[in-house]
Design a protein around this nucleic acid. Structure first.
Lengths: 245, 245
DNA sequence: TCCTTAAGAGTCATGTTGACTATAAAGGGT
DNA sequence: ACCCTTTATAGTCAACATGACTCTTAAGGA
């Protein structure tokens, strides 16, 4: 091995430093479509382009803390609400020229948000919006790649974890849960089979006692469920055609 | 949003910078046990402790390039050999105090090596060795956590990808492939069932034409196989009890 | 009132898996 | 040589899971 850690006399200011940022792929489901929170850049580079929200990791913050702080700022959700959201490290993007100004290493996160609030713009972003996945022009920096990786990861995790409930409000119907799968995977699932599978998986969902009904529009009222305690799905709920990872 | 990217007049040297390193969890299978490449630290902090190999990301390198360079240096394998090994980003560790000297963000990788060569020591490492997983004293920094995450990830990926062949030499028997699963998962698998599953998965392995036999010790000679082109396993090969991710 | 939509109960054939049995082909020991 | 142990490989069988459907119930809308 060469220099495993900073040598004893290492001077942090001696060479061109790395900047460390977080980028967030914030996903939600609204009106039958998978949407991602994007901001329009107000300044160069990529002024006028859309990008994933994100920002610098502060000197005494972990990347996850920074991500949660940015998430609260971008979505306008309260800190306590954001604390309950699903936030997961995706991967880190380190290509030397990914930012034309300087060396920036970005730790990307995926966040899943139920029931999306209207985002606030502000800062050096012209505006922030929930854009249907795949309908936007190419994003700034390498954000198309990050977003594609996030979509791929979420799609794969739906197969073998109970992650889908993270897209749903505290109480939801099996129809809403099924829509999560259909929207992320871009397929249609057989209702009775989906229902059988979910209910047969211990800990995936828990029936809500109260009035066993709810109206979302037409059709027979559906029973309400809450997320169960389980995190893994054994056996998994595989995509119809499907690849993974 | 606050400051999405470095403002125009941003001075890279203005504040305490982050250092960016890579850490490698290099795994192999030798003598029926899962082993990890560890180095003994020659200097403070954690002098005398064992740690994962790793080092700085150079100014014009991506993290993956740095990881592959370190991997070649640590294992003594040639650059062309290392180019063929499975190397995958695990996650990034960013706790502010993970290194007592300065702010270090570390991008961790998992590497899978068949047929482990003897490592070379050198640099500021006292020595480097293949240590059976779980038998070592607590590692330096947060490397126990990184190593546990790597083990968990590899175990999970064996379920739904063809990753197991990355632990095997170019030609291997189904017994060797089964040992990969048994060693990483710490379970025993039923031979006929394992065989049936692997052979029934298109593209997992390809039979080698030549002399359909090989001697590893006692028992009937086994046919040889090579890795097939597939990367995903559908349906997956689930762990006996098992959780995932 | 009829039609449409969605929930939810059930059926049936097929595919996969776990548990086992049996046979073949080596090596080691006596 | 012979027997025993070890490992590969071929099958069998029942339990389980899944995909494709059918049918009934309970809304809302025209």
């Amino acid at each position: 091995m060469t220099a495993h850690r900073a040598p004893e006399g290492y001077d942090p200011h001696a060479f061109e430093p790395f900047a460390v940022t977080v980028d967030l792929a914030v996903l939600t489901i609204r009106e039958e479509s998978l949407r991602v929170l994007l901001v329009e850049r107000a300044r160069e580079p990529y002024a006028g382009s859309w990008a994933l929200p994100g920002g610098f990791v502060l000197p005494r913050e972990s990347a996850e803390t920074a991500a949660r702080r940015e998430l609260a700022e971008e979505t306008g959700l309260s800190g306590t609400t954001v604390a309950g959201l699903h936030l997961e490290q995706l991967r880190t993007y380190t290509e030397p020229d990914r930012d034309p100004r300087m060396r920036v290493v970005s730790v990307a996160f995926t966040a899943l948000v139920p029931d999306p609030p209207e985002p606030r713009g502000g800062g050096d972003a012209a505006q922030a919006r929930w854009i249907p996945y795949g309908t936007h022009a190419p994003l700034a920096f390498d954000h198309d790649r990050i977003l594609a990786d996030a979509h791929e990861r979420v799609g794969a995790k739906l197969e073998y974890t109970c992650l889908a409930t993270a897209f749903c409000p505290p109480e939801f119907t099996l129809g809403e849960l099924r829509q999560v799968y259909e929207t992320v995977w871009g397929v249609e699932l057989d209702r009775p089979n989906f229902r059988r599978k979910v209910l047969a998986t211990p800990g995936f969902v828990r029936a809500v006692e109260g009035p066993p009904r709810l109206t979302g529009g037409r059709g027979k009222p559906a029973a309400l469920y809450r997320a169960g305690g389980a995190t893994a799905l054994h056996p998994p709920l595989l995509r119809p055609e499907g690849r993974s990872s």
